[in-house]
Design a protein around this nucleic acid. Sequence first.
DNA 1: ATGCGCCTTGGGCATGTGCACAAGAGCGTA
DNA 2: TACGCTCTTGTGCACATGCCCAAGGCGCAT
Lengths: 199, 199
Amino acid sequence: MGLSRSAERGAEVRGRLLVAAAQLIPEVGWHAVTTRAVAERADVGPGLVHYHFDSVQSLLRQAVVAVLSEALSVFPPVLSETASADAALGDMLAALDDYDGTDTTSLLFVEAYLASTRDEQLRMELSRLLEEFRVDLATWLAVHGTRAPADTAAVLAAAVDGVMLHRALNPGMTSSVVAPVLRRLLGDGDADAVAEGSG
Amino acid sequence: MGLSRSAERGAEVRGRLLVAAAQLIPEVGWHAVTTRAVAERADVGPGLVHYHFDSVQSLLRQAVVAVLSEALSVFPPVLSETASADAALGDMLAALDDYDGTDTTSLLFVEAYLASTRDEQLRMELSRLLEEFRVDLATWLAVHGTRAPADTAAVLAAAVDGVMLHRALNPGMTSSVVAPVLRRLLGDGDADAVAEGSG
DNA sequence: ATGCGCCTTGGGCATGTGCACAAGAGCGTA
DNA sequence: TACGCTCTTGTGCACATGCCCAAGGCGCAT
């Protein structure tokens, strides 16, 4: 066996290009990511991009899928380790404070959603990724006695993304504000009544 | 008085350019909207764009603000005419079936959100627009006895946008699936228990 | 050493881009 | 009729873009 050193370095450079692309998409917007900008960020010559990737669109697609599948893969283990529904939702929304709607991860998600409406292949891959996530979330919700777990999981996932979106335009939308309201989605009214009191 | 005919026609053309831009943004993406494409869609010469607008960015900003403020202005009158909370949420979500995540309006919203992270002036105008909407929604929620109306309005608005986003990647997310779950946000647990039964 | 395969470089080309500008068309006023 | 105002046209320019390609580097097997 023994992949040649050249091949190893090649794979490493390919990875740097993917990382650079994933950084640039949120910064300048999907269509504004250029071969030269990606190459410069990855510290390689401009021609290398089209050696490792068929086209810019292909590079962006692979970069986005890699990062998002990585980001989503974090949740299942976290969920399985958490005992109560409240605690888990708390964790989820605390993590949401890191994603303030202007950070690279949030924006990459949204850019990916938009790009998927114009790239059939990306649409299918993203669709599969999100479905896996919803299934994991739904089974976890079912274990904790939430009604209609599949539907709840779908709406909860959507709501979290919506909150990320709005947060960039509504600074008051901290997790402490969102959490009590979103908790109602899980269907237990008592924790809700206790948690609130001030506006 | 009598504005000259030229001026009238000028204003009309300016309007056509705004409409053309608002159509193109969802179709090809914010950064891919070019002066020539807008001019062609509006059936005018390429040079006209820079006569009526300072720059492409300025044209897109004005187009987006015009369309979104129009779209949001539809809701307050609908709300004030509706008696029950359930009926109103039903209306809202029925309207959501028209916005399936791949239609021009939904995509224009999302493109606007993204663009606002790179255009301070657009960010401020969109921020104001959404705040007005949230205030209207909150006062209506308060009238119908929802707890923490302001926070609930913020989360509900975000959730609706999130549902629009996800719907493009999750066809099963119809209003009949979303409505029962989202109804829990309003805080009454009884209607919820009655409405569900199947997954 | 020598040849081979992969990775890398830098430049080139056709095309598209935002924006500027001079020339003209239509219409109200004198 | 002649003038002035606004809107409109088409073209021009400097520059950026995606993608291509000939030439060179570097480690590995022979």
